[in-house]
Design a protein around this nucleic acid. Structure first.
Lengths: 147, 147
DNA sequence: CTCAAAGTGTAGCCAAGGCTACATTGTGTA
DNA sequence: TACACAATGTAGCCTTGGCTACACTTTGAG
């Protein structure tokens, strides 16, 4: 290999680590949608007995069209079971994911609340943060939540 | 308005609030890319004197093609100034955003480290989390970082 | 001064996730 | 039981953000 025209960047943050971090963030983003959906489906099933497309649309703040297409993908990926004009069900895989998400969500919200953040802000921030919290950090948050 | 066929969902988490939170998260996602880019450009400019497309690609973990197209958008939106085959510069707006992001990043990482999280995990988690931290939460994190 | 290789740009593909507009199905009530 | 309207589904469009393949510029080594 020849010497590059310019020397490689000696950045404040090492390139390799940041690139890896950002790739990780992008991977997480891909599963965020799945997590939001299974969580919402689990909640709706619990509170209403069943989850319907309109309810999901309302919950997720999108149109029923978006819900529909996403459900098709989630079915392809094995998280949900959908039949035309019928209620939506989680597969065992989907249910497991939903429970993990609900748990993570509760931990993050509780932690933010314990920092003195208002209920509303805690919910909003948690919704964005929860998908990016590693198991290690989640444990630390739980440990540092002053009850 | 007529009575709906099914009663509206009485969910565990109120629909309206969650929908709003998710909409907020989506809005944040739209600006995440901009934030990552301006931050990287600022870092590279500081450490190397200039930011070039290849360096950005390496830093962000994508190909130069993706960098190129995104820079075109960021120029359209007024964050950067780009000329063919030349170095990339931040506009005043872009510089301001970069500084905010760098600050937020430092606060989040410092906080995670103070919780006992390892350097590497702290960096990875911060990269995902930092875009979703409200000013209120950021202040709380700074306050609760045990030095 | 040349020219090969590094850097940069462009064309065109793909998937996700928004949307509107319109078609089809289900069902409670009149 | 019919049918209006809610619910659901489908067609097709947009943007973002990945990619590969190929074309064009720059530049430093020889």
């Amino acid at each position: 290999m020849k010497k590059p025209l310019r020397p490689a960047a000696k950045a404040v943050r090492p390139s390799a680590l940041q690139a890896e971090s950002l790739r990780q963030t992008r991977r997480e983003h891909a599963s965020e949608t799945a997590e939001d959906y299974v969580e919402a489906i689990a909640d709706l099933s619990a509170s209403q007995g069943e989850a319907r497309v309109v309810d999901l649309a309302r919950r997720l703040g999108v149109t029923h069209v978006t819900v529909n297409r996403t459900l098709a993908r989630l079915q392809r990926e094995g998280f949900v079971s959908v039949q035309p004009y019928r209620a939506i069900f989680l597969t065992p895989t989907g249910l497991k994911l939903a429970e993990e998400c609900q748990h993570r969500h509760r931990v993050v919200v509780a932690f933010l609340r314990s920092l003195g953040i208002s209920e509303k802000i805690a919910e909003i921030d948690a919704e964005g943060i929860e998908h990016h919290v590693s198991p290690e950090t989640l444990a630390a948050l739980a440990r540092h939540t002053h009850r």
